[in-house]
């Protein structure tokens, strides 16, 4: 996993709430056995509309997605995160997220930021945002906004650590558990 370094980038505003992972990446793209190349399927159905934000030249090159509440609800498909990252998104800001999607983001180095909508909108007036995980702040127009993230998750994202390798250091504990619960 690539460490998450401070990100300053243009924003892709997706003015929709309850966006499910079926919308982020529809089923026809799930038959792959790879992680790469899914960006072409990102928001595939909505992208057929020329007016959709992804098709507007002024948002080309955005690395931060700002969306409405409950973003990434529904299916567990990690392909949704892979598609966003393959497209170039490094950070998603929303008031709330689907649980599995939020976890999937953290496992891949895509930073999910929980921010109340008025805060996000105020910051957005700048068109660009600076997201700094170390200080847990989002800076746009107006004062810096603080966001919450679990310390363990933060550390892994900052250092780009391989979670499986970390867990395997606990092997004696896992073996002890297995011995007690055959």
């Amino acid at each position: 996993m690539t460490p998450f370094t401070p990100l300053e980038a243009a924003v892709l505003p997706l003015d929709r709430a309850h966006v499910d992972t079926d919308q982020i990446i529809p089923k026809q793209f799930l038959k792959t056995t790879e992680r790469a190349g899914l960006g072409r399927g990102l928001f595939f159905a909505w992208r057929q509309d020329p007016a959709f934000v992804l098709n507007q030249p002024r948002y080309a090159g955005a690395h931060i997605l700002v969306a409405g509440e409950n973003f990434g609800c529904g299916s567990s498909r990690e392909h949704a995160v892979w598609a966003l990252m393959d497209y170039g998104i490094r950070c998603v800001i929303a008031p709330s997220f689907g649980d599995i999607f939020y976890n999937n983001c953290c496992k891949n180095g895509l930073l999910p930021v929980r921010l109340a909508l008025p805060d996000a909108q105020r910051a957005l007036a700048a068109g660009r945002l600076r997201v700094d995980l170390a200080t847990q702040t989002v800076i746009g127009a107006g004062p810096a906004i603080h966001f919450e993230i679990a310390p363990a998750v933060k550390q892994r994202l900052l250092e780009g650590l391989d979670e499986i390798a970390l867990t395997l250091r606990r092997l004696p504990q896992i073996e002890a558990y297995e011995a007690m619960h055959p």
Binding site: S76, R77, E78, V81, I100, N103, N104, K107, N108, A152, E163, I164, T167, L168, R170, I174, E178
Partner: peptide
């Protein structure tokens, strides 16, 4: 769970 967690369970039989 997501696919990264599937891999984690494969390797460790555990999840954080």
């Amino acid at each position: 769970i997501g696919t990264s967690e599937v891999e984690h369970v494969f390797a460790t039989q555990c999840l954080w």
